[in-house]
Simulated scan of single mutants.
Amino acid sequence: MTTTPPAGTPAHTPARTRIGLLGTGPWAHRTQAPALAAHPDVDFVGVWGRRPEAAAEIAEAHGTRAYDDVDALFADCDAVAIALPPDVQAPLAVRAAQAGCHLLLDKPVATTADGARQVAEAAEAAGVASVVFFTLRFATGTSSWVTEQAAVDGWFTAHAYWLGALFSPDSDSVYAASPWRGEKGALWDVGPHALSVLLPVLGDVTHLAASGGHGDMAHLALRHASGASSTATLSLSAPPEASGVGVELRGASGVAALPNPWGPGAESFGAAIDALLESARSGTPHPCDARFGLRVTEILEQADTALTAARETAPRTATTA
């Protein structure tokens, strides 16, 4: 059952793509919903969430409707944008694809390779387009930088770091209460961002090693198909004074550093909407489609296994009686 659309809700026209939103958390409030409502080529059809009152709040704020039946939302849409925890996202994305909806997914697609594979295979079987919202691949400045560096030959090494203060004692971030981030840590939350830059520039990962550090810190050492190597340092528990994000490439042409800042999140998400609409129109898979999201998930799962093994075999600090 759906509510009656508010007065003034624009009627759908063939030139506009009907997109619904799944999710009602801070990311949906701050990024997805505003971008969908503002996009000139989108009819923001409605919102579904696990908390109906939150779905109603977002719907009212953006002049659309709240759905209490997710399959009814799928039936009314050409595409869906998903802002849910990864292992809630994956099975719903499969259902949406089977209903004929194009997919605008969040990262990571899932926290198991099997879950992400089911999404990629469902999208391919249904013939729907898919885009995974890796922020650095769509943000103003960084998106073009990645494309430019991928066209440069001779990179032999890179270092990526994403040091967030989400779990620092003084953090007041609304994202700190996220159960899945608390459980999976930086590897799964910000690791996808690092990989989304390193893979298109240096090639697929052919070998990796991992070790832990302070809090949820993860250090990755990667070998790439191009022969280059890279490292990534990831944390959500860094002191605020030590937080920051960067990628540095070194090669025959010198040194290149990721531009910063990137621009508003809603603006970046608008670029991801553009990418999905173009892929759906042309039938050409986007570089950040669900199949790429699957590969990122496979690498993260391998890194998680290596990180767990490294922590279990690390020598304990000796104590003095």
Rank of each mutant, 00 (worst) to 15 (best):
G8R: 06
G8C: 08
A11C: 05
P14V: 08
A15S: 15
A15M: 11
R16I: 02
G25C: 09
Q32W: 04
A33S: 03
P34H: 02
A35G: 01
P40N: 11
V45T: 15
W48K: 03
A54V: 04
A54T: 09
A59Y: 03
A59Q: 05
A61L: 05
H62P: 01
H62D: 01
D68Y: 02
V70R: 14
D71Q: 14
D78F: 09
A79T: 09
V80E: 11
A81P: 03
L84I: 07
A90F: 12
A93L: 13
A93V: 11
V94M: 14
R95K: 15
R95D: 15
R95V: 13
A96G: 11
A99K: 08
L103W: 08
L105W: 04
A110V: 03
T112R: 07
A113C: 06
A116P: 01
A116R: 00
A116H: 01
V119R: 00
E124G: 13
E124R: 15
A125D: 08
A125G: 06
A126S: 10
A126N: 04
L136Q: 14
L136F: 13
L136H: 14
A151G: 12
V152S: 13
D153A: 14
W155N: 07
A160L: 01
W162V: 09
W162K: 05
G164E: 04
A165S: 12
S168Q: 13
P169M: 13
D170T: 15
V174A: 14
Y175K: 11
Y175P: 09
R181C: 03
E183L: 07
K184T: 11
G185C: 00
A186P: 00
V190P: 00
P192T: 00
H193L: 07
L195T: 02
V197F: 03
V201L: 08
L202G: 11
L202Y: 09
G203I: 02
T206N: 08
L208H: 03
A209R: 14
A210K: 01
D216A: 06
D216T: 06
H219F: 15
H219M: 15
L220R: 01
A221F: 12
L222H: 01
H224E: 01
H224T: 00
A228S: 04
A228I: 01
T231P: 03
A232S: 14
T233K: 10
P239W: 13
G244R: 05
G246K: 03
V247S: 01
V247D: 00
G254Q: 15
W262L: 12
A266F: 01
A266S: 04
S268R: 08
A271L: 13
A271G: 15
A272R: 08
A272M: 10
A272H: 10
D274K: 07
L276Y: 02
L276M: 07
L276N: 06
E278Q: 12
S279G: 12
R281G: 09
S282A: 07
P285Y: 11
H286L: 08
P287F: 05
D289C: 03
G293F: 01
V296W: 00
T297L: 03
E298K: 02
E301V: 06
A303M: 06
T305E: 15
R311I: 05
E312S: 08
T313R: 12
A314Y: 06
T317A: 10
A318H: 05
A321P: 11
